[in-house]
């Protein structure tokens, strides 16, 4: 882990999150402080330690392969900010 070098603007862009200049400045300072705190994890030797992704590891959990009802299309689209027929409407993506 090197010295914190996060570019808040760039990372926010990756997260599809627009920031105002004021926010970018504030978050940069605050998050550098948080990263400096997180740096303490470097003190530990974690060689050979398996990572924990879930506290209660369960894998390949399947439900019974039985047909069942699902949300009707109209209800699934009930919260759509904009819809067109049975679709969510968004700005044009492909020219």
């Amino acid at each position: 882990m090197s010295t914190p070098s996060m570019d808040v603007r760039y990372v926010a862009q990756l997260a599809r999150l627009n920031l105002s200049p004021d926010e970018a400045e504030r978050f940069q300072a605050q998050l550098e402080q948080v990263l400096a705190y997180v740096e303490q994890l470097e003190q530990l030797d974690v060689k050979g330690i398996e990572p924990t992704a879930h506290a209660v590891p369960r894998s390949n959990v399947f439900r019974a392969d039985e047909e069942s009802s699902s949300l009707p299309v109209d209800e699934a689209l009930g919260n759509a900010p904009q819809r067109l027929n049975n679709l969510f409407r968004v700005p044009k993506v492909v020219e």
């Binding site: 882990m1 090197s2 997180v38 994890l41 470097e42 530990l44 974690v46 330690i49 398996e50 990572p51 924990t52 992704a53 506290a55």
Partner: peptide, 15 residues
């Protein structure tokens, strides 16, 4: 690796 994976390993130590 430096942050997420390391944190998951320390999570193992805490467990």
């Amino acid at each position: 690796d430096a942050y997420y994976l390391r944190a998951q390993k320390v999570r193992t130590l805490i467990r």
